[in-house]
Design a binder for these strands. Structure first.
Lengths: 211, 211
DNA sequence: ACACCGTGTTAGCACTGTCAACATGCGAAG
DNA sequence: CTTCGCATGTTGACAGTGCTAACACGGTGT
């Protein structure tokens, strides 16, 4: 906008790795405004660098967003891990596996609602880049966590092996859809109580449905 | 771009209602390129009108997108209605209600995959405008259809009334999430067979879960 | 007859992504 | 030690965007 009166112009940033600085500023912008708040020019401005320096480190805006997306996915996975750990109360293996499975979904939604900016950027591929050969998808940390939870359900006999295929994708889709509808979609204006009810209902339906 | 050599410059469009022309061109753009393909300038160009005439009919770009979104929702509802009608085979009321419920979800996903551009614009609110007091949400044609399907499940005794609340939102979220993941998300590169399997699995889980 | 108001036009501002041309400086090759 | 080359950052420009103010015109109500 006007100038860098605010926020101290960090002209003398550790120039040695500008890429990290750009990524950091990009993450900050995404965190508080979603993908569309991440503009190369603003990122460069905040990194105290000029106009098109970012092109030495990122092919284009989509590449920067993709890097931010990786970070966001990691953060999400972290949140999911703590959720899973906290759900390990019961002694019964089957029950514990169930609790973990549900905790995964709850953590997913909590992250989405808490870090809405990062979430919006986490799972939205940009049309460019390589076709993402599904290995990349499967190895996405949050998806891997969910998949292992479902494997655990099968191991503890709580889910028939015949029902295992695509159950991960379905469960993921369910929580993801609710997150999207609550954030950008028509369910944006639900109050906290209604949100919570919707989340509980969705989780319980998916829980019931995977047996 | 260069000029209107292609597509015949419709200079002499029925000027009497430019609003309809703008909306039509906006829909065309959205259909083939999603929300981000809809730029006011391009829409105006295609309508054979200049630079900022659209502002006499739409407050801003978000308003145009919102109008396009309404159209898209109607189209979606149409597709869902034909899907519901085609699923009315069985004579048993409960079974028929189930079939209709599932057909709703399948139609939703079919529309999303077929008309991906329109779908992307259908359920993505722009931050501006009024807070959308949930009546607006509930009266959205696709949601109303889904809700009535669930009511039918309750009437035929297939779904306990105690489980009715938020079941509509949950079911909607599930199919919506799969659509989003398949279109823009990490599941973009699933081939047709895998897509179909994922859809079947999700529908079956939601079907099982709502009992 | 006149003033008004709805509609369309022109010009312009502040942004954006992206690229080509240029500068600079450090490390390797001769 | 000199010199070449490459990686990185800068400047300036182009095309595109949303949006606004100032203006022009034409029908309608008083």
């Amino acid at each position: 906008m006007t100038d860098q009166v605010t926020a101290v112009p960090d002209r003398d940033r550790p120039k040695q790795d500008l890429r990290a600085s750009l990524l950091r500023e990009g993450i900050a912008l995404a965190r508080s405004g979603g993908a569309e708040a991440v503009s190369l020019r603003e990122v460069q401005r905040r990194a105290g660098v000029s106009n098109s320096a970012a092109y030495r480190h990122f092919a284009d805006r989509a590449a920067l967003l993709s890097a931010i997306s990786d970070y966001a996915a990691d953060q999400m996975a972290e949140r999911m891990r703590t959720g899973i750990a906290a759900a390990a109360i019961s002694g019964d293996p089957a029950e514990r596996a169930r609790a973990r499975f549900c905790a995964t979904g709850v953590a997913y939604l909590e992250f989405a609602l808490t870090e809405s900016g990062l979430f919006a950027v986490a799972f939205q591929m940009q049309a460019a880049t390589v076709p993402t050969p599904l290995d990349r998808t499967t190895q996405s940390p949050p998806f891997a966590l969910l998949a292992s939870c479902l494997d655990e359900l099968v191991e503890t006999g709580s889910l028939a092996p015949a029902h295992r295929p695509y159950a991960d994708i379905a469960a993921w889709a369910a929580v993801h859809g609710l997150a999207v509808l609550l954030l950008d979609g028509p369910l944006r204006d639900l109050d906290a109580a209604e949100r919570q009810s919707a989340i509980q209902r969705l989780i319980s339906i998916v829980d019931l449905g995977t047996h």
